[in-house]
């Protein structure tokens, strides 16, 4: 059986003009030769930093954007040549606050899209109730969307994407803006769809979400795929590491450089948290550098310190920083 999604050498550049008087044109290479395949029934994650080209890739796969070069097929159908046939088989959720008819109720938004997707009118109301229930909007469907909260809008986007039972579902940051409980429910919904045979391509900035849901993940940075594999395989890339995480208050360049210089340390990342910072030190598995790290931090207030196994997030960060530095 052919794969659900086949992307081959996909390229997309945007051109923009600047300035009112002296018009200058510039080109952004958003996607630079991306290739991957997603098998039927697989849940595939596309992870990458802001501006990496995830949304651009999904827009091409959902026929909303033409590629500059390369090809993409969904259910064996070319997204440029067989646009209409692709559209009947896919659903997509871009989410955000916009993209809904504010003056209509949630129910009427769904009704309109049900007509556009030619959902069988028999059983339509039951189907609408079903998706409303899935996303937890039941009871509020009669209210106008202009009165919906951000998370409710996001749920309505998801409901709309599911309405016509698509074979392949594209979810671009589906859990953005929804509360923790709803996000958990949404993950369950997605997992359930995949159990029923739906193919899902998901982007998210939440690593635990990707780790929990995805069968396979591609990491994209600056328009190119820098790694691909199961969550376990990606973690394996940093499995030779041990991670030392130190809570520090007001660390400077000099201290970071001193930590970097310790023998056995492979990478050092500083994350800003609310009041403190987290110093994340990767080192060779056989070594315990905690003592040296604390020594190198002489003069900086140090909070908690912990040594742990690398997570998907560690793997992701090390892949992305390597790609962005390179």
């Amino acid at each position: 059986m052919e794969p659900a999604i086949e992307v081959d050498g996909l390229v997309r550049s945007y051109s923009a003009t600047h300035g009112m008087v002296r018009r200058r044109r510039s080109t952004v290479e958003a996607v630079r030769g991306v290739s991957f395949q997603v098998a039927r029934g697989e849940l595939f994650g596309l992870l990458g930093p802001n501006g990496a080209g995830k949304t651009t890739t999904i827009k091409i796969l959902t026929t909303l954007l033409l590629p500059t070069a390369g090809t993409a097929r969904v259910c064996g159908l070319d997204v440029v040549a067989d646009t209409r046939a692709v559209r009947t088989r896919i659903g997509y959720v871009f989410g955000g606050d916009r993209g809904l008819y504010d003056r209509l109720s949630g129910l009427d938004n769904l009704r309109y899209f049900a007509e556009l997707y030619a959902v069988d009118p028999r059983g339509l109301r039951a189907r609408i109730d079903e998706v409303l229930d899935l996303v937890g909007l039941g009871g509020r469907e009669g209210d106008r969307v202009e009165g919906y909260s951000r998370g409710m809008r996001q749920r309505l986007h998801v409901a709309r994407g599911l309405l016509h039972r698509p074979e392949v579902l594209f979810l671009d940051e589906p859990s953005i803006g929804v509360d923790a409980v709803a996000a958990r429910e949404l993950r369950a919904v997605v997992a359930h769809l995949v159990e029923d045979g739906t193919t899902v391509l998901l982007t998210t900035h939440y690593m635990f979400e990707a780790d929990q849901l995805c069968d396979r993940i591609a990491v994209i940075a600056r328009g190119s795929i820098v790694a691909e594999g199961t969550p376990a395989q990606l973690k394996d890339q940093v499995a030779d590491d041990r991670v030392v995480e130190v809570q520090v208050f007001g660390i400077g360049e000099a201290e970071v450089a001193r930590v970097r210089a310790i023998t056995g340390v492979t990478s050092v990342i500083v994350e800003d948290h609310e009041q403190a910072q987290a110093l994340i030190v990767h080192c060779e598995r056989s070594l315990d550098v905690s003592a040296e790290v604390v020594a190198a931090l002489d003069g900086v207030r140090v909070g908690s310190i912990a040594t742990r196994e690398p997570t998907l997030e560690d793997a992701y960060i090390s892949l992305v920083t390597a790609a962005e530095d390179g």
Binding site: T62, L64, R87, Y101, F113, L116
Partner: peptide, 18 residues
């Protein structure tokens, strides 16, 4: 205004009927 064009045009609906 509602930024719904992408959602509508991404459906297979015949444009004539729309």
């Amino acid at each position: 205004r509602y930024q719904t064009l992408g959602a509508v045009l991404g459906t297979p609906a015949p444009r004539g009927a729309i």
